[in-house]
Nucleic acid binder design. Structure first.
Length: 97
DNA sequence: GCTCTGACTAAGA
DNA sequence: GTCTTAGCCAGAG
């Protein structure tokens, strides 16, 4: 459990209206493995306090099981003021934490 | 204890 | 810019 605790801690530090990448979280959490970060978020519950929707892949695109249902995450990010481009990707130049 | 899979990333083509 | 290959660590079988 302590393994993912670092990851959750990092994600929780992401400010409102910003996003970060799996690699960044992995590096900050000391995991150095983006896949584990994704796995850690996958075991999170919907009523969690962790802003998992602020985590995107390196392209800035939504990742919720590779296109399983990104509409929810996109909506939540838009509610925070995050803007998506035509490809449905976030401008990491602006919103990257 | 070994093998496969996985919300990924970096490097090469 | 996109596609492919290799690598990383942690769970599930």
């Amino acid at each position: 459990m302590d393994t993912y605790e670092n990851i959750y801690e990092v994600v929780r530090q992401v400010p409102f209206g910003m996003v970060t990448t799996y690699g960044k979280v992995a590096q900050l959490s000391g995991m150095n493995n983006a896949r584990v970060v994704g796995y850690a978020l996958s075991v999170l519950q919907a009523n969690t306090e962790i802003p998992w929707h602020r985590i995107v892949n390196r392209k800035g695109a939504i990742s919720y099981r590779e296109g399983a249902g990104p509409s929810l995450q996109k909506t939540m990010l838009e509610s925070e003021g995050v803007v998506f481009n035509k490809k449905g990707c976030i401008n990491l130049e602006i919103y990257r934490w």
